[in-house]
Computed example of a mutant assay.
Amino acid sequence: MGELCIHSVLVTGANRGIGLGLVRHFLGMRNPPKWVFATCRDPRGQRAQDLQNVASNHANLVVIPLEVTDPTSIKAAAARVGEHVGGSGLNLLINNAGMVINNTLDDETPENMTQIYTTNTVGPLLLGQAFLPLLKKAAQGSPGSGLSCSKAAVINISSYGGSIKEVYLWDQIQAVSYRCSKAALNMLTKCQSLGYRAHGVLCAALHPGWVQTDMGDSVGNVAPLTVDASVRGMLKVLSSLSEKDTGTFLDWEGKVLPW
């Protein structure tokens, strides 16, 4: 097991929190990717200022506008990535963009359920579909027959909160729509792993931990894990994934989590 060796990676929701942390760590590798694609809704907005500051110092970082619930926006982003990577394709797609509304079972609404499911579950589905041609190119151009993140992979950032068996932190945050969307994302990951395996694409769901981000702190308590610690752990896990791990649900330390 060593550091990831990839030509290209795309991270959604990359303007802050875990997404921005992933981008920074990819750029800081000893052998960084030739292309790091960072997407967010409004790259020119105030909430993306930190990302723009990073981009100004890295020629291999391409910031792309992307609304993960909009098929037209997704197709445009895929086309732009394709212009950069050409025949080498895209090695790693990290579906990190997500949202949470901390509603209880009593005050959850159809509108919240629909909005959060569309962002957290439908978005990763559409992104997988749009980027599959580029992932297939990367897989075809990589040596060896096994699956790995260095070859071609879709990584969905999920949550232990979506575990039906554990219902993690229920006493502190119900967030019913969020939990349902992440449980559905886990099933999507399993489906993608079965559907994309023949194309040489590994698929896995990762729980990043309870992290000190705007989302992580929305529970009302200070999250125990820093962005840096979470991202370092996840990248170590990604570097170790192989064919036996496709379709699994893991945490940032590589522990298999219950569905």
Rank of each mutant, 00 (worst) to 15 (best):
T12M: 11
T12A: 05
T12K: 12
T12G: 09
T12S: 14
T12L: 10
G13P: 04
G13F: 04
N15V: 00
N15E: 00
N15W: 06
R16W: 06
R16G: 07
R16V: 08
G17K: 01
I18D: 00
I18Y: 00
G19A: 00
G19Y: 00
G19D: 00
G19I: 01
L20F: 02
G21W: 11
G21Q: 13
L22E: 06
L22T: 08
L22V: 05
V23G: 01
R24V: 05
R24H: 06
R24F: 04
R24L: 13
H25N: 15
H25A: 15
F26C: 07
F26E: 04
L27V: 04
L27M: 09
L27G: 05
L27Q: 02
L27I: 04
G28M: 02
G28R: 05
G28I: 03
M29E: 11
M29I: 07
R30A: 14
R30H: 11
N31L: 09
N31Y: 12
P32Y: 10
P32K: 10
P32S: 06
K34D: 03
K34S: 13
K34V: 06
W35S: 15
W35G: 12
W35P: 07
V36H: 01
F37C: 07
F37V: 09
A38Q: 03
A38Y: 07
A38D: 05
T39H: 10
T39I: 13
T39D: 11
C40I: 08
R41V: 13
D42F: 14
D42L: 10
P43V: 11
P43T: 11
R44M: 08
R44K: 14
G45P: 09
Q46L: 14
R47N: 14
A48W: 08
A48C: 07
Q49I: 06
Q49T: 12
Q49L: 12
D50W: 08
L51Y: 04
Q52C: 09
N53F: 02
N53R: 12
